[in-house]
Design a protein around this nucleic acid. Structure first.
Lengths: 231, 231
DNA sequence: GTCTATACCTTGATAGAC
DNA sequence: GTCTATCAAGGTATAGAC
């Protein structure tokens, strides 16, 4: 009856990664630690995965708890064993997504000391992440307003850190006169915007793959920020 | 009882403009033609305006017909005299918004013959429109999926025309060797993305006004597309 | 063209057996 | 920790008087 759990585990990598980062409570890790039989996927993970699919397809308000439960292969009541409310499920998904996104951009920042390479790497990785996780990305970017104030504050802090990271990269490039930018916060916003808007339209299997799109946008970002005389 | 119609007519310019363009049926025009007493706003317009506010605040699925009716100062039943369904109201708002957006970008295209000025004007006007109409813009950009297939097709045609216009501007600049672009459709997408993503976060009264933001993005667009040797 | 009243359905969340 | 059954509230849309 409730065994119609979808096999399309598009976001599983993200969820598992989030668990490793501590974004989601560590019941999955405990399961293996105590030697419990490892089913293919825990109920918690199925639930988060079902929520991602449902929220991405229909939006937060358009999603019913019955829909999530059916996708996770459980009864509507079982959802509330793991999460206090539908909004609580959204917060779990949004937090995992944001933690993944900031890890991606901070790692890209750290990978090179050269300001131009840095901009290239950051826009490349940020864009690629949004293309490859466009379903989670849609929730991350569009359902912020559906969070309760307390959860909104937690997410806003991560968003600010992402913008800070990009601003820092621009400032350092300007200091060494390799980058030429009039409006640092505005340009940081534009560079992030480019990657973020990908979630609005990108679907795997289109005419462009995630890596090609990321390379295109990274190249445009370098043109936007580099000194024209030095180019 | 139902006289709580909000005075915040943020989208009124758009709505009236859409009527002039024929996007919305011409009852408002008929009203004056037959010499009827001109109330400040017709019920139709109040309804469309209320729908814009409600959809922008809560999304299409999060909006109730009761909410729209209350904002328009009428009973829930009165809504159905003007529109067959909630989705039909969304379509009216979305169509008016899309027609306004394409008019803006096509006028910007036609304003200059110089390829660089053209890119500047198109990105400037498109960005400014999305900043100044961020509430309508949010509906235009994020509620496409809530339309029924027939309405989706009508809107998709306008979206394609917007992309065509931007691609044409890039192609003409490349032909005269003033612009230097590797991937024309991809770059067109990026330029439009920059303006579109504004609706996600822009609110009037922030640290940047619509014109300043548009100027910043237009400048970045020119850097993205112009020949580096010629610069 | 507007109202009051309401039909009929789905919603998020809970109770209590197992 | 999962189920079946259900609650109270609120959803879209309609009926029929004025």
């Amino acid at each position: 009856m409730y065994a119609i759990y979808s096999k399309r585990l598009l976001s599983m990598v993200l969820i598992v990664d989030a668990v490793n980062h501590g974004a989601i409570n560590n019941s999955a890790i405990n399961n293996s630690a105590i030697g419990e039989t490892m089913t293919a996927v825990t109920a918690r993970q199925r639930l988060l995965d079902a929520a991602v699919e449902s929220f991405a397809d229909k939006g937060f308000t358009g999603t019913t708890t019955r829909d999530i439960a059916a996708r996770a292969g459980m009864s509507p009541a079982a959802v509330y064993v793991h999460h206090a409310s539908k909004e609580d499920l959204l917060f779990a998904v949004s937090l995992a997504g944001h933690k993944d996104a900031i890890a991606v951009i901070e790692q890209a920042y750290a990978r090179s000391d050269d300001p131009v390479d840095r901009i290239h790497n950051m826009v490349f990785d940020f864009t690629k992440w949004h293309a490859e996780h466009s379903r989670v990305g849609r929730i991350v970017q569009y359902e912020f307003g559906a969070l309760v104030p307390e959860h909104r504050r937690a997410i806003a802090a991560i968003r600010n850190a992402i913008e800070d990271c990009m601003r820092k990269a621009l400032e350092e490039g300007i200091a060494t006169k390799v980058l030429q930018i009039d409006d640092i916060p505005g340009t940081a916003l534009a560079l992030l915007s480019l990657g973020i808007d990908v979630v609005r339209w990108f679907e795997p299997g289109g005419s462009r793959n995630a890596g090609e799109l990321a390379e295109l946008y990274a190249g445009l970002a370098v043109r936007m920020t580099t000194n024209r005389q030095a180019g």
